[in-house]
Design a binder for these strands. Structure first.
Lengths: 356, 356
DNA sequence: CTGTTAGCGCATTCAG
DNA sequence: CTGAATGCGCTAACAG
């Protein structure tokens, strides 16, 4: 960056400014400027700004306020951060935005933070482990007082870094091995079971499971829930009815392609995430397989797009708003921190499972 | 990302307790600690860290490096920002994430910035004008050297604020009235016309247009392109074939509901954004209207979900990667700034228009 | 009630 | 080649 100071050869300026500062732009006003204009000291300005810690007389206060207004003064956040050792920003570490689930998750967290007067800095690792470490440490170095982590691989070095610093960390949706800190999540296993039991209720007996390779995380738990439901109903079959795909709908669609052609006897699929369900429904559409009459589908996540897919997707809706609020509460308020905060989901039955 | 709270706009700040201070944690090491351990001065540590501006002997350098390593020292970003007057972060102002278009747009910008060693702070205004001002000024106060603005209403006060500060600003997709700064966008009008001409090529003569209320921005230009194509083909009809909706697919679906029941003679729709097209296709699905045989649909944006919708959506694909790269180039590099950078789109013909 | 002043951690200039 | 010293803008002791 560094705009060029073209008038570098200063003839004899009374105040030799740094050459990289644009000469036409006036320096931003500081507390000192405000103090001078208000005829007070910088301390008083600070007291007015922060409404404390010492009282200020009404007359002085209004003089300071006037000066602030006239100079269009705005405090420097970085100076404040340096001094107070904590930035006004909260960090939010996300694995990526390919899956709208994470986008959906971020919004209420932002809003809950905003309600408390904090901005959220989203750091997107784009599913890259190296980036995860880089952005998380950047956040810490920036001085954020807290970080919400919505997706991260197990990384001992990162865990150590977090441990060594004094940031508060809250995990959302999943806490990988090796980390400590409260987790805000849902009972993936139980609700997955609920979804599959619903499909069984529709009369299906051969129910496949579409998941990706994340056996330790929420997806793994959802796959377990699928097994639970089948076992309980005496329908247990082997893992040959598990379809493995990548995390995004495109790879789910590709994974479904081979599979849909050979699985004539399967009449329903539980998709471990809505994103995967979308990929499956896409492939079914291309192959001319009718949903739900030829193949029933049930998702998990409850992203808003599930309400407008063709056909509309039945799914387990996560309480995004509650999650955001709880995360913010853990980040900002002094609260007992039981390790796991489990929030309630809500099933929504739409067309894709055969309910409509 | 980042939503600004009301407190972001207020000058003063809440003097909250700081529950996150953990007294048991040792203070983070500073340059002074490193210098002491390496047996040098802080200046030398700085020289090593920044590889200049003065040379350092190989032996001293390695001693410093060793000390940094042993202490697990990491420089404080806020101190650096305060000192250098510029943060390491780039700001990205987004109107919201309801429409995946903006999510799609943000990713390549992030990546292009990351390639240059910068992280991006996403500020999400959530389509709220007050938030726009709040978050943008928060970004400026934070000391970011540049801001990419992907969505913003016309706001004289904000324009003045930007003008008064020395941030570089680049507009993406749209530059509202009253602002100055380079714009990176596409030729909305011409490509919209292309899309409609494609529909005409399929034999359609009554082609509707689905848009939202943004007549000055890109959507307005796309509606104009729709008119252009019809006029040129001698098919001009009045604005009664314009369907007005909100920005998201849910409201597009609602807007389409009334309309689809009466549209008997209309056989094709040009949707000004993919998001609107998704809403339309959803409603068509619910009403049992077959796409494309009963109603052809063409979108605009080229979000990745268009490739997996049911049916797959024909659309004008914006060059997201090029846009991101160009934005970063304008933000970081010294470059001539012609006002408008127009990038090329690419039409993709899928099932929804009748091509497959 | 208000003014003075010492740092926060870092980068950089000026002496050595 | 290196070290001491000076702020960046702000907050909060510590004096009045």
């Amino acid at each position: 960056m560094a705009a060029a100071g073209c008038a570098a050869s200063s003839i004899g300026s009374d105040r030799a400014e740094e050459p990289w500062v644009r000469p036409d732009k006036p320096r931003r006003p500081t507390v000192a400027d405000v103090a001078q204009r208000a005829g007070t000291s910088t301390a008083v300005v600070s007291y007015v700004l922060n409404d404390g810690p010492r009282p200020v007389s009404e007359s002085t206060r209004s003089r300071v306020l006037a000066a602030i207004d006239e100079l269009a003064y705005r405090p420097s956040r970085s100076a404040r951060t340096l001094r107070s050792r904590h930035s006004q920003f909260i960090g939010l570490v996300m694995p990526g935005t390919i899956d709208p689930y994470y986008v959906e998750l971020s919004l209420p967290i932002e809003q809950a933070a905003a309600r408390r007067g904090h901005l959220v800095m989203i750091a997107n690792s784009d599913f890259d482990p190296a980036q995860e470490v880089a952005i998380t440490s950047a956040l810490i170095d920036e001085g954020v007082p807290g970080i919400a982590i919505a997706g991260l691989g197990a990384s001992p070095s990162l865990a150590r870094l977090i441990e060594a610093s004094d940031v508060r960390v809250v995990f959302v949706h999943h806490r990988p091995e090796g980390y400590t800190g409260p987790l805000v999540a849902v009972d993936d296993r139980r609700w997955a079971r609920h979804a599959v039991e619903h499909l069984i209720g529709h009369g299906h007996t051969r129910i496949a499971c579409l998941g990706h390779h994340d056996d330790d995380g929420p997806v793994g738990a959802r796959v377990s829930g699928w097994r639970d439901a089948l076992s309980a109903a005496g329908l247990a079959h082997g893992d040959e009815l598990i379809i493995r795909s990548g995390v995004d709908r495109l790879s789910a669609s590709a994974a479904a392609e081979h599979w849909l052609k050979e699985r004539a006897d399967v009449t329903a699929v539980f998709a471990a995430t809505d994103e995967l369900a979308f990929g499956l429904m896409h492939r079914a559409g291309v192959l001319g397989i009718a949903i739900p009459s030829e193949l029933a589908v049930f998702g998990f996540d409850g992203v808003s797009a599930a309400a407008t897919s063709v056909p509309e997707l039945s799914t387990i809706v996560e309480p995004f708003a509650d999650i955001g609020e709880r995360v913010a509460a853990l980040l900002f308020e002094e609260r007992d921190d039981p390790k796991d905060h489990q929030l309630e989901c809500r099933p929504v039955y739409r067309a894709s499972c055969g309910c409509r």
